[in-house]
Design a protein around this nucleic acid. Structure first.
Lengths: 202, 202
DNA sequence: ATGTACATTGAACTAAAGTTCAGGTGGAGC
DNA sequence: GCTCCACCTGAACTTTAGTTCAATGTACAT
């Protein structure tokens, strides 16, 4: 069936806009009588007629015998994120620069238990994390060997590589000019989370 | 009145989320009995109790004797993005880990004229851009010396440092083991944009 | 033990809102 | 003139859904 939304009567268009406006701004749609009252239609049946027309023309959908159960059928597609065009290679040709898909950066780090820190210093420079970079951290209290963790030791927060061997926990900076930290068994050390991502603004 | 939205019980939070989800995804809210059915509450009054609690705590507002007339009160602060907790230093203490502000990653690269590419290869490794990183590129056709640009040369797209001196354009990889590209005057070269950011998912 | 907050049931009641039927305009087109 | 259609009224009916009251159980703190 072809697009019929432009074949609306003036009245139908008005009513449709009213319904959409209510849902948008108030959070819930109008009742049949509410629509009638707004447009000076005294009988609920007068409105029913319009609603049926709107439903037939595909602009709304309703659930029978149910108050305010009007859904507005959205024709607009959700364009969240930035257009993702493909790969940039180290000299080799790029396939199709117009493959046009969207990459939702926000969604890349979805979920409740993430937070962001800004890195100061160069202790992770060999892991290609620079001074000023933002790191996205996933909250969790355990880590496996080699993972990069954000740990709190005696009220200091650091980003390091985590190693656990021979009953000893070692936190290594990714910078050969710095020394690893050996966590003493009695010290107040805690893993806050593991590295989930890096965001750099140039 | 103090902020009470965190003083919700588990159950109240669940119900609140359910209501919000319905409004968000279906376009109209649930009825009292619908909520009850979803949570295994057999009496509408069981739900009423929760709704009254939610209303008293300021998360929703309702209109009496009116079907599905639940409004979700939007907390004023825009909760977009991820919580930004501060800096993680190279060993030095962090100030206050609970300064709780939100960093909207999406908004970091705001504006229409941005797009995303994924980096393949190691030509920018000395700039701490790794294989697999996403780069955010701001569309523009000119660059100044030293800026990192995405350029298209004979249908190949590359990420390089841009230099223009003695009437000659030079594109240098940030990898000393690779050679710079000298753009020949007659060649089909074009700058697509300049580097605006880097996003890495670990 | 006693009070309070929370979560819930069950029954009864009331109001709101959807639906249907039987009409009644007024204009456009044949 | 006749018919179709969009638009509407009015009344009656049904269903849904909101509201209230009385009461129960549990957990927790005083």
């Amino acid at each position: 069936m072809a697009e019929e939304s432009d074949r609306l009567t003036q009245r139908q268009r008005e009513i449709f806009n009213y319904i959409r406006e209510k849902i948008e701004n108030r959070g819930y749609g109008p009742t049949v009588r509410e629509i009638g009252h707004n447009f000076g239609i005294k009988s609920p049946n007068g409105v029913m007629c319009h609603l049926k027309a709107l439903e037939k023309k595909g602009l709304i959908s309703r659930e029978g015998f149910s108050a305010r159960a009007i859904q507005v059928i959205q024709p607009k597609k959700n364009k969240k994120g930035l257009p993702f065009l493909g790969s940039v290679a180290a000299g080799s040709p790029i396939q199709a620069i117009a493959q046009e898909e969207n990459l939702d950066i926000e969604n890349l780090f979805h979920g409740e238990n993430h937070f962001v820190l800004q890195v100061r210093g160069f202790s992770m420079i060999e892991d290609h994390i620079q001074d000023g970079d933002f790191i996205v951290v996933k909250k969790q209290e355990n880590a496996i060997n080699g993972e990069r963790v954000v740990a709190m030791i005696d009220n200091e927060v650091t980003l390091k590589r985590f190693f656990h061997d021979r009953g000893q926990i070692r936190l290594e900076p990714c910078n050969t000019s710095m020394n690893p930290i050996i966590v003493q068994p009695g010290s107040d050390a805690k893993i806050l989370g593991i590295l989930a991502g890096v965001v750099r603004k140039c």
